Amino acid sequence: MTGVPASAAGGSAKANGAAASSRGTAARGASKGKGAAAGSTGSGASGAQDGVKSARGGKIAAAAVDQASVWNIANLLTMLRLLLVPGFVALMLADGGYDPAWRSLAWAAFAIAMITDLFDGHLARTYNLVTDFGKIADPIADKAIMGAALICLSALGDLPWWVTIVILGRELGITLLRFWVIRYGVIPASRGGKLKTLTQGVAVGMYVLALTGWLATLRFWVMAAAVVLTVVTGLDYVRQAIVLRRQGMAERKAALEETET
């Protein structure tokens, strides 16, 4: 039998020991790696929870700001216009409705309402004061003061009833039209619509005052221009609503066909 040198046996033992030591080091490294990965996962989960809490806190803070912003200057001006409506009617009909002094005070109330209408919208858009209350109350206040003035003028015999019916019918029809197409989009206010509102305000204001002579003749033509703009812009809104609805229906149909395929 051939003997194995002692030096070779010793070297083999050393090699086996080194291999065992290497395996132990690798095992400890893997264990540390798993621990580090677990720590990283725990840290990520904690960060995600902190992010959710922060998002919830942000939503709560935003809701608080929205609630507080209801009492901003733009909404206060809108509320002022609403309060001016009964005051305007009382002044307009005081002493039979034909006293020049009372009519002048009624005109002042109407003018303040029209001016605040210009300012509240500008302030809301410029300083980001737009609220749900303002979106609802602003158009109501506009139509309330204009409707009250037209009805009072027609009731007193200063303005034909058909003019009042055309103007108020147009405003009500456009409001219903907006709700009809709201699922497909919003009809933006046009320059013609803004010019119509301005012309109506000037014409009604001139009728509220007890004017005579050439000023009485002038107010007739201003009101005629307001009626024409009322009808023309109303028809344009109808056209826009039909186009918007057709486009919306076509887009929905295309979306349904894509989902089916």
Rank of each mutant, 00 (worst) to 15 (best):
M206I: 08
W71A: 12
T259A: 13
A13T: 06
F88H: 00
Q49C: 00
T25F: 10
A241R: 04
T217R: 01
W180S: 08
I112G: 07
Y98W: 06
W102D: 09
D158K: 15
N75Y: 01
T233V: 05
K59R: 12
A225E: 09
R183L: 02
I136Y: 11
L123R: 04
A210I: 00
L91Y: 03
I182D: 12
W102S: 12
E260T: 06
A106S: 04
I115A: 14
R183I: 02
G29E: 15
T261V: 09
L195S: 11
L91T: 10
W161M: 09
V65N: 05
S7K: 15
A19I: 14
V4P: 00
G97D: 07
R183K: 15
A108K: 09
G121H: 12
V222H: 05
L211E: 01
G35P: 02
S69Y: 12
L168D: 09
N128R: 15
I115K: 08
T199F: 13
A74W: 08
R191C: 01
R125W: 11
L93F: 04
I174W: 04
L82F: 09
V238H: 02
W221M: 00
V4G: 01
A13M: 05
A27W: 02
D50F: 03
A94D: 06
E251I: 04
G24N: 14
A108P: 00
L80W: 08
G173D: 01
D95Y: 02
A6P: 04
A6I: 04
G173L: 11
G29P: 01
S46Q: 11
Q67S: 05
F179R: 11
F110C: 03
V208W: 07
G29N: 15
L176R: 10
Q240T: 08
W107E: 02
V65K: 12
G24F: 09
V238F: 12
L159K: 13
G87E: 08
P188D: 09
M146T: 13
T41K: 14
A113D: 15
V228T: 05
L91P: 01
T212L: 02
R28I: 07
K143C: 04
I174C: 00
G96Q: 11
A155H: 13
F220R: 12
T212F: 00
N16Q: 13
W214I: 03
T259N: 10
L93V: 04
A62S: 14
V130A: 09
S7Q: 14
L93N: 06
L91N: 05
G24D: 15
R125C: 06
A144Y: 13
L172N: 06
A38M: 03
Q200R: 13
V166S: 02
A137F: 14
E260F: 12
A101G: 05
R178M: 11
A124Y: 08
F119N: 02
L150A: 07
L77Q: 03
S22Y: 07
N72F: 04
L91F: 09
E251A: 14
I112V: 15
F179I: 02
G58R: 15
I115W: 14
D132A: 02
A148Y: 10
S43K: 15
I242M: 13
A68G: 01
A63S: 10
S46M: 10
L76G: 01
A68S: 11
M249Y: 00
V228H: 05
G51H: 13
V238W: 14
A26I: 13
V181K: 08
T199M: 13
V52N: 08
W102R: 10
I140M: 12
G157P: 13
L76N: 03
A250P: 03
S46R: 15
